[in-house]
């Protein structure tokens, strides 16, 4: 049976992880490669690396980092942050990234999704959407959640999949940082209307939240950052918890 995926997300700046890491037995807690390898050993199913300060000059640093990750880590990983062209994607895929994720650049230029899907295949094109409820409807935000776009969540997600996105990474800005749980209803709606996998992000605070979004929320995967980095939720225990409650997970 296909299992539900648990995905830690690592924020990167200048080749280093930026969020505080309260982790065990790490030589260099700021080294994304070592941290990623540790998560892989603990049973993470995939990793996401987001370059939060990505610029053209820094793309080379990111490419080098991606090569190091691919050399050391034996599970799939996605790279994102400031990707706005097919050439940037080509560099990252050739350096060993399995998938790339785009967000603001796709809102600005939706044709980028088509171009990437045709050139590299839908399976490696992940569309990230930051959504926030405004006057009762879910709107799409760009630039790290700073700018409200014209787009509505469900319409945008459907359009993106028709254009060739192979997976949707949904971050609920209303839930993000609250530790009160994922946006279960929104995730479920999205997952039910889309023919591709949906990854839920934002709001993880305890193990039950993962259970809720992977069952009631019908998410194919759940992503979190700080609860893993600070050791508040440990992946092996989380997976045991999910398995005991009947959720198919890889242990």
């Amino acid at each position: 049976m296909l299992t539900k995926r648990i995905i830690p997300c690592l924020d990167i700046k200048d080749g280093k992880t930026v969020k505080g890491i309260n982790f065990i037995n790490l030589r260099d807690a700021g080294d994304p490669v070592e941290l990623g390898a540790r998560y892989a050993e603990l049973g993470a199913d995939e990793l996401v690396f987001l370059d939060i300060a990505a610029t053209l000059e820094r793309r080379k640093t990111l490419t080098e980092l991606v090569k190091r990750i691919a050399r050391d880590i034996n599970i799939p990983f996605t790279v994102g942050g400031g990707i706005d062209s097919a050439s940037a994607v080509e560099d990252l895929l050739n350096s060993g990234a399995d998938k790339i994720t785009i967000n603001s650049s796709a809102v600005k230029n939706p044709g980028l999704i088509d171009e990437l899907a045709v050139r590299f295949g839908s399976q490696c094109v992940v569309l990230s959407i930051d959504a926030k409820r405004i006057n009762g409807v879910e709107k799409v935000f760009t630039n790290g959640g700073r700018n409200e776009s014209e787009k509505f969540l469900l319409l945008w997600a459907k359009e993106a999949v028709e254009r060739g996105a192979g997976e949707i990474l949904l971050t609920s800005m209303d839930a993000d940082g609250t530790k009160n749980g994922f946006a279960v209803v929104t995730t479920r709606t999205l997952s039910e209307i889309l023919p591709v996998p949906v990854v839920a992000s934002g709001g993880a605070g305890k193990e039950e939240h993962f259970f809720d979004v992977l069952t009631k929320g019908k998410a194919d995967a759940a992503l979190a950052a700080s609860v893993f980095h600070f050791g508040e939720i440990k992946i092996p225990e989380l997976k045991k918890f999910l398995k005991n409650k009947g959720v198919p997970v890889r242990i």
């Binding site: 296909l2 995926r5 023919p195």
Partner: peptide, 27 residues
């Protein structure tokens, strides 16, 4: 179901040389 088939799934193998040292249904 959703397509692509993406993620970790089990294989039931024939126990041949290629699968030496693995459990019956590895992911």
């Amino acid at each position: 179901n959703k397509i692509p088939h993406m993620g970790w799934n089990e294989i039931k193998h024939n126990g041949g040389k290629l699968f030496t040292g693995l459990t019956d249904k590895p992911f």
